[in-house]
Design a protein around this nucleic acid. Structure first.
Lengths: 207, 207
DNA sequence: TTTAACTTGTGAATTCATTCACAAGCACCC
DNA sequence: GGGTGCTTGTGAATGAATTCACAAGTTAAA
């Protein structure tokens, strides 16, 4: 990939794809940047600029072919294949994620969960087996998961991340409310509910 | 508030506060912008600029007083008071949130959960009672919650948000993977795991 | 074929956010 | 008191993201 694409752009592409799939299922064949923008809470210029980083997919005067654009976005986002996921931390959040439909819909397949608590090891979270974290390295070498989801307490998160990174996994989704350090070739995305809540508190206070 | 403060700035303030509280508990009395930046994965200039929007809290040559800056940040973020929260949707994610420690730590107190499924109504999620959503309007009028957390299926999210907005609630944390429309005086923050996962897929694909 | 109505793709302009760079202030020591 | 070493606060410079604005391409209808 020649140019660097902003994170915000990738997030919007992801949103556009969702609308396109909705349109696709309703049998619509074309859509304009304007319509896509209205759904995505942005502007038509933004939609066209976002897409222009990757090529020109539309027809002037007409708009975009829904199935074609959807397919191109799936390609760009790397959703044309299955991604293998492990969950590290079998607490409540881990359990909620194990049954989350969004994973399957996008062909993210959950291989296993890991925990250090003997009471949890051997149980199942919605069909996902909880293994002893001591087997993490062995299992990763065997199953080659692409993504690790971290749902461990904040105080353990950095140590667990370091361990995950050493296994060679290059993508991590972190739910611990803490800033993590990782080498540059490992992508870490953090979902931080505490931060969102404080954003709401700020908004409620300063108006 | 005179100037408009960027979302990214507020998120960083939130991160700084977390480190400050950590320092506070370890009894440290001062901290430099440089140290704060190292922890927060940013630069010292960024830290100072962020704080400068709200005043000047440091001492040249010395840094910032840890308890004082923490207190100021709590004020700025509106964390000096209790916020009342309701959870709408008593599925797995709602259940995970009901027991999430981060709420209590920041004095976000969960009043109740709501669902339309008769099997869930009357049960408890970690001490939080699940009520019939038909009582939402009555209960909101009585209890005056500040924040609604939406953990309903994506296809119901907009309708439920509209209903929540009509009760007068001005802040919503949405977990449904969908773009929601709300009036400008209502702040909606969306936590979209699907989008984060697709960001990881993109990163893994384009390297 | 010509015209009218649309809509894309994209440089240029603008707005917004981050980084630079340094004067000014403070603490400590000689 | 003056010098040294640090660190803040902030205008100015840079960089990044968004919006503007319009030429160029497409369809459909007259």
């Amino acid at each position: 990939m020649a140019k660097h694409i902003a994170d915000s752009t990738v997030r919007r592409l992801s949103a556009y794809l969702r609308f396109l799939e909705d349109f696709e299922s309703r049998g619509l064949s074309t859509i304009s940047s304007d319509e896509l923008a209205r759904r995505g809470g942005t502007t038509s210029a933004q939609v066209r600029k976002d897409l222009s980083f990757f090529g020109s997919f539309g027809k002037r005067g007409l708009g975009y072919s829904v199935p074609e654009l959807a397919e191109r976005l799936r390609e760009i986002l790397g959703l044309g294949r299955e991604w293998k996921v492990i969950i590290v931390g079998a607490g409540k959040i881990g359990a909620a994620l194990a049954q989350y439909r969004g994973f399957r819909q996008r062909r993210f397949s959950i291989l296993a969960a890991y925990d250090s608590n003997p009471e949890k090891i051997g149980r199942r979270l919605d069909g996902v087996m909880v293994h002893d974290i001591e087997h993490l390295e062995r299992d990763v070498a065997r199953d080659e998961p692409d993504i690790a989801v971290l749902t461990v307490p904040a105080e353990d998160a950095q140590a667990v991340l370091d361990r995950v990174v050493r296994t060679g996994i290059k993508a991590v989704l972190n739910f611990a409310p803490t800033q993590l350090q990782a080498p540059p070739d490992v992508t870490v995305k953090t979902v931080n509910m505490a931060m969102e809540l404080e954003g709401l508190s700020y908004a409620l206070t300063n108006r």
